[in-house]
Design a protein around this nucleic acid. Structure first.
Lengths: 235, 235
DNA sequence: CGGGAATTGTCGGCTGGCTGACGGACAGGG
DNA sequence: CCCTGTCCGTCAGCCAGCCGACAATTCCCG
């Protein structure tokens, strides 16, 4: 979602958690950022599970993901809901009322938000890029609202799977193999539902022959059409 | 439409963390925009009920509200949910997947989004403003997600009323009088619930002495404390 | 290989809140 | 003043999906 620059070709369909064509960290800095733009950014390495921002203690920073993965989420006493999973090349600002936590060892480029603003002013060419990035994040938040307000759980899950398939699916003999690096619980968080609901839905669809579990962290989708059908608002 | 010079007295902006329903970037007209910045904007007058953008036919425009009110919302076959109600001075970009409809006769300054980006690049000083504006809109969308995911309807309504009271409430002998210019149905849309639920809650609270209906479109809040208490629940 | 530890599958019960339906209460305008 | 449209209050019925509990599976790591 907060996909860095790149082939900004297709419409903002991305559901949270989509990293798109993983681009090498080395080139992640190139597109859009003028040479030397990253110079004032502070490199920072974080261990897995590190929480680097909370709604109550926001750090006013902007960061770019160099490697690793982070989860942007909201939390309750009893539940979490993910807004996005950031990957290499993604950009995010911590001055939103969210939690941000590393899912694995992660390297960032960090900069103070005020300083970032000054850099922007000095480098006008970067502004349109920022507009696009923020706009995309906003679009995704809006899509999430739409999901929560209008769609039932099966529709949300189906749509999620379709998106994943479009973005990282690998076509195969039996269908489309998609390697989610997420557990059932993680998917539930992304969709704003519970582990149990996701689990039983996937198994039900498995029995109906729509898809097959392939090991712990990947699915083989046989009938994408049927998924599309289920992704349309049911009642 | 015989609207006088808009810029006159505007409500106190800069309420931190006020989101509730209205998430407008309440930058009342003047602040931040260099003199002449609006020159390339096209003035446009719209009648009440005009739909100026839909998810399927987005117009890539940025506009600033000169007078009137607009509703930014998502819609289903059977339901709507409001993301924001824009008022004079608010800025919005239509390249998000939402509907935008006028609630009354409205005047805008409109500009093509590409041209806007060019202006931004030429006027670096405006970028920080844009960042803040977009950031605030995003924050409010996130707050809405939080509401839908974690809070039950009573909590949402209570929080909404508290926010309204903070923003437009007038302290009075009997409590805090707040003039919502919205009907029950409108409130329901803002909260992502139904007319019936809002109605019965308000009347229940009325019976409990928390508040009183004052005419069709305003409420008198007696016990703000109790409302705060009700806004915290989750189950 | 073997024993936790984590992750996943399944079930029944419970409930928030949506739906639909209907009557009352205000307009307003003719 | 009636008639008509719009808005508000309330109630019964119903169901998606959350919760808690537990068994089955898989993973991990010595």
């Amino acid at each position: 979602m907060a996909k860095g620059p790149g082939p900004a070709g297709h419409h903002p369909s991305g559901h949270p958690g989509a990293g798109g064509g993983a681009m090498p960290a080395s080139t992640a800095q190139a597109p859009g950022f003028p040479e030397g733009f990253l110079d004032d950014f502070l490199p920072r390495s974080l261990a897995k599970g590190h929480v680097l921002s909370t709604p109550s203690h926001p750090l006013n920073q902007v960061f770019i993901v160099r490697s690793g993965r982070l989860k942007v989420y909201l939390a309750n006493d009893t539940r979490e809901i993910s807004l996005a999973i950031l990957e290499a090349g993604d950009l995010f600002s911590t001055h939103t009322p969210t939690y941000v936590r590393t899912l694995e060892a992660t390297e960032l480029w960090v900069i103070d938000i005020g300083q970032f603003a000054r850099k922007l002013a000095a480098q006008p060419a970067v502004s349109p890029l920022m507009m696009r990035v923020l706009g995309r994040i906003l679009s995704n938040a809006i899509i999430l609202v739409e999901d929560l307000a209008f769609r039932d759980v099966p529709a949300r899950l189906a749509r999620f799977l379709i998106r994943q398939a479009e973005q990282r699916g690998v076509t195969e003999a039996e269908g489309c193999l998609l390697p989610l690096n997420l557990g059932t619980e993680d998917i539930a968080c992304l969709l704003g539902t519970t582990r149990q609901s996701v689990s039983s839905l996937i198994n039900q669809w498995q029995r109906e022959g729509l898809l097959t579990r392939r090991g712990r962290h990947s699915l083989l989708i046989h009938d994408a059409q049927a998924l599309v059908a289920r992704s349309l608002t049911s009642n």
